[in-house]
């Protein structure tokens, strides 16, 4: 079986996000970029399935600028077998990304797509579900437990919903999106980095690959959220209860 894992290049989770004064985007000077943490969890799961079952090829893919190759190299260093970079300098919305991934799916014919439930930059949480719809495949979102059943023809997935854990089975191929608790991604090792240099990283121009993928979302401006003012310090429980009862009137 082949597992396709899309990896998005995003500002590192520990970065302090600052909006540019002209509102055109966020400051990227000096910002460290990483693999979207949920995508790293997806790749970790693919690698664990490969270690368990053996005959699995893991393919990582990214869509975007030349620099996305860094995140693909990280994926290869973690243990992915090969990488595909679909080059584009356009801002693509989730629908456009899903269209590109659908084209990649048709080319690669994987048995499973594993991807993060959301990217921590755009926070949309749409791509996997749209991809599944475009391909007419089943989906399981927010997966925190995964087990392949019946010779990898089905997957049993634990899903983190607002009400608690839900378990479903999904016919494969399917698109599964990963939640935080599925696993803890491995660190990249030095031998892993050395091996990654010899692994194939194919670069395809988006315009050749999926020319119709155009964003329908237009960013007019970005702004910092209104700053919440720090309030008062209280010295005791009595003072706190008094303020909550008589000043804020919330209890």
């Amino acid at each position: 079986m082949k597992i396709l894992v899309p990896l998005k290049r995003v500002p590192d989770a520990d970065t302090k996000i600052r909006v540019k004064p002209d509102g055109s985007g966020i400051e990227t000077d000096g910002v460290k970029f990483s693999v979207n943490p949920f995508d790293a969890i997806a790749l970790e799961e693919a690698l664990r399935l490969k270690e368990k079952f053996g005959d699995i090829e893991t393919v990582v893919a990214s869509i975007g600028e030349e620099a996305c190759a860094e995140q693909l190299r990280t994926g290869l260093a973690m243990g992915a077998d090969r990488a595909v970079l679909i080059r584009s300098d356009a801002d693509l919305d989730p629908r456009a990304v899903a269209q590109v991934l659908a084209a990649l799916f048709r080319r690669e014919q994987p048995g499973l797509v594993l991807m993060g439930k959301q990217a921590i930059d755009d926070d949309s949480n749409q791509c996997g579900q749209m991809l599944a719809a475009l391909l007419g495949l089943g989906q399981a979102t927010f997966v925190s437990k995964l087990e392949l059943l019946d010779h990898a023809s089905r997957a049993r997935c634990g899903r983190e919903t607002d009400a608690g854990l839900e378990t479903v089975t999904v016919t494969l191929p399917a698109v599964l999106t990963t939640d935080l608790r599925l696993n803890e991604p491995r660190y990249v090792s030095v031998p892993g980095i050395l091996k990654a240099k010899k692994k194939p990283l194919e670069v395809l121009p988006l315009t050749d690959f999926c020319a119709g993928a155009v964003s329908r979302t237009k960013l007019l401006r970005l702004e910092a959220p209104p700053h919440r003012q720090a309030g008062a310090r209280v010295r005791s429980v009595d003072e706190l209860l008094d303020k909550l009862r008589h000043e804020a009137k919330v209890i």
């Binding site: 989730p94 749409q126 749209m130 991809l131 719809a133 927010f142 329908r216």
Partner: peptide, 21 residues
């Protein structure tokens, strides 16, 4: 919610339409 985030993007995909979260 997790309900709408699971289902709406899929319906949007079926109708080839964009979505904002």
């Amino acid at each position: 919610s997790t309900f709408s985030k699971d289902i709406l993007p899929r319906a949007a995909g079926l109708l080839d339409t964009g979505m904002l979260s």
